[in-house]
């Protein structure tokens, strides 16, 4: 099976010898992009969240072969060189993580949420919209603050760029 995927902006031709491979296992075990984490492998924790064609999805419940032609962004593709994405910086500033294992998924989910543009600065909407990402360390307060802070930063950067 041949598969065309764009991963973090780079077009890739992938030969799959097994149709069972999920996007998560393709990224982690075959492309060695291990930033996306496997916390449950059943879409119940969000640690594997990546963007597919700009939408946040659980890569563990996505069959890689069905993604032919898609564009995938993972945590490895978020920063601009050494310059962190505003969501990444906000997670550090607000201590939005402890062990860090759910963090790539949290961050990709937050990036997806901000792209969706529906939560704004309402903490209740952010909490609800981030509830597909479980953090067993319980860093939710920092996560919520980080998402709101990053969304504001991104909005003001956009305004400035437009001006």
């Amino acid at each position: 099976m041949n598969l065309s995927l764009t991963v973090n902006g780079e077009p890739r031709q992938i030969v799959l010898d097994d149709p069972r491979v999920t996007l998560l296992d393709l990224l982690r075990e075959r492309m060695h992009l291990t930033g996306s984490k496997k916390g449950c492998d059943r879409g119940q924790c969000g640690a594997c969240t990546v963007l597919v064609d700009g939408r946040r999805v659980n890569s563990c419940l996505t069959l890689a072969v069905s993604l032919d032609g898609a564009s995938v962004t993972t945590i490895e593709g978020l920063a601009d060189g050494d310059r962190l994405h505003p969501v990444q910086q906000a997670f550090i500033d607000h201590d939005g993580f402890q062990c860090g294992f759910c963090t790539p998924g949290q961050i990709m989910s937050a990036v997806g949420l901000i792209l969706e543009g529906e939560a704004g600065d309402d903490p209740e909407r952010v909490r609800e919209a981030m509830s597909g990402n479980i953090c067993r360390c319980g860093a939710y307060k920092g996560i919520t603050e980080a998402v709101i802070d990053a969304a504001a930063k991104i909005a003001s950067d956009k305004q400035r760029d437009a001006a």
Binding site: R28, L33, T34, G35, S36, K37, K38, T74, I75, E76, L78, A79, L84, Q88, Q89, F91, I92, D93, D95, F97, G100, F101, T103, P104, I107
Partner: peptide
């Protein structure tokens, strides 16, 4: 202080056993 391992953890570069 913020976490010294913060950048590694927010970029996916922190290596856990299964990685």
């Amino acid at each position: 202080m913020t976490r010294r391992d913060g950048v590694l953890k927010v970029t996916g570069a922190a290596t856990y056993a299964a990685d």
